[in-house]
Simulated scan of single mutants.
Amino acid sequence: MALRFIALLLVCQLLGEMLVVWTELPVPGPVVGMALLFVGVALRGSVPEGLDRVVDGLLANLSLLFVPAGVGVMLHIAMLREEWIAVTAAIVLSTILTIVVTGLVMAGLIRWVERRRQTEG
């Protein structure tokens, strides 16, 4: 059963990669695949129990997925020493941008939910 849902995750990623290649979107394929999975789950109305278990298992071991990134950092440490200002600026600015966008989206969602409650109640 779990193999079926692992295959579903991989198919969604593959479809995302194919869409990015065909449409030349400036977005990573796995992100598009995740959006496709989200649309599928939203249309279904709930997360299948098997998919829930598979995803929980992946999230429980998420730290293992950072090992290749750590190896890459160590492999290119000389380049990072030379470009540390640009890397630091990119990390700080992207973090600030993420916090601002998340806050704006959350504020918008709160207003949206309040308006829905007022119209329903």
Rank of each mutant, 00 (worst) to 15 (best):
G50C: 03
I96G: 05
T102K: 13
G16F: 06
F38Y: 07
E120T: 07
A107Q: 15
L25W: 14
F66M: 07
L93M: 10
A7L: 12
G45C: 04
M79V: 01
G33W: 04
F66Q: 01
C12W: 03
D52L: 13
L75P: 05
M1E: 12
E24D: 14
P30R: 01
V73D: 04
P30I: 02
Q13E: 04
F5N: 11
V87N: 11
V11E: 02
C12A: 15
M18R: 15
R111Q: 12
V73F: 12
P26G: 07
G40W: 06
M18A: 15
W22H: 10
A78K: 14
D56C: 04
E114I: 06
M106N: 13
V71Y: 12
V67R: 04
V11Q: 00
I77P: 00
V47F: 07
V92E: 05
V11C: 02
A2G: 15
R115F: 02
F5S: 10
Q13W: 04
G45S: 02
L3C: 00
G57P: 04
L104S: 04
Q13C: 07
G45T: 04
V31M: 09
G121Y: 06
P68Y: 07
G103T: 06
L59G: 06
M1G: 14
V11N: 00
G103Y: 12
I77C: 00
G50I: 02
L36I: 14
T95S: 14
H76G: 04
T119M: 00
V20I: 07
M34F: 11
G29M: 02
T95L: 15
G16Y: 11
A2T: 13
P28T: 03
S46Y: 05
T23M: 14
I77G: 00
T119D: 00
L36N: 06
M106S: 12
P28K: 08
V100F: 07
L97T: 01
G16I: 09
G50M: 03
R44L: 13
T98G: 05
L97G: 01
V92A: 11
H76Y: 14
V67T: 08
T88E: 10
T95V: 13
I77V: 12
I6G: 00
I85E: 15
R4P: 01
T102A: 13
V67Y: 05
V39D: 06
R81D: 04
F38G: 05
I6D: 02
G108W: 07
V27G: 10
V41P: 09
L80S: 11
G29K: 02
H76W: 13
A35R: 03
R115A: 13
V20C: 08
L51W: 04
V101S: 00
R115M: 06
L97S: 01
V31I: 15
L51I: 07
L75R: 11
V20G: 06
V55F: 14
G16D: 07
L25N: 08
V101T: 01
L75D: 09
V87S: 13
G103F: 11
G57Q: 08
L9K: 08
C12N: 13
L75E: 05
A42N: 13
L25K: 09
R81F: 11
L51S: 07
Q13T: 09
S46V: 02
L14K: 09
R117T: 10
G33Q: 10
A86K: 15
R116M: 08
G33A: 10
I99K: 09
L14I: 11
T95D: 11
G70C: 03
R115S: 12
